[in-house]
């Protein structure tokens, strides 16, 4: 990336749960690390998330979910991204996700999964190291 290039990350909340405190904390940490963070609010459909991510030309997409629908929603999002030319976006997941589900999600194109209590520093560093 060029020296003036600022990393752009979208933090999105797919699914029906109504809590975004965690997502906001991470969004702030990414901003404080010098990134531009697009936050779209609660209860977004995969279509809405992918449309926004493409228009915003983000380098990374962090999906935060507590509702348990990740096995359905995450792969749907990565599939839509591939169909629409967003396959280069670094997609990560966070929230309440059982250990057993992680391999399947990674197979579906989720590059990393952050469990509850992951420090924001870990997430910030992962984004820094993996956006191209």
């Amino acid at each position: 990336m060029g020296k003036d290039t600022i990393v752009r990350v979208m933090v999105a909340k797919p699914g029906l749960d109504g809590h975004d405190r965690g997502a906001k904390v991470i969004a702030r940490a990414l901003r404080d690390a010098g990134m531009e963070v697009i936050y779209t609010g609660l209860r977004q459909t995969p279509e809405q998330i992918v449309t926004a991510a493409l228009q915003e030309d983000v380098d990374a997409l962090l999906l935060s979910i507590l509702s348990g629908a990740h096995n359905h929603l995450f792969p749907r999002i990565t599939q839509l991204l591939r169909e629409k030319g967003g396959e280069n976006i670094l997609v990560m997941g966070g929230g309440v996700i059982p250990q057993d589900d992680i391999p399947g999600l990674k197979q579906a194109g989720i590059r990393e999964v952050f469990g509850p209590g992951t420090s924001t520093e870990v997430i910030v560093n992962f984004v820094k190291e993996n956006v191209t």
Partner: peptide
């Protein structure tokens, strides 16, 4: 950095 929240 920046928090861009108008889309909400």
């Amino acid at each position: 950095g920046a928090l861009l929240g108008d889309r909400i």
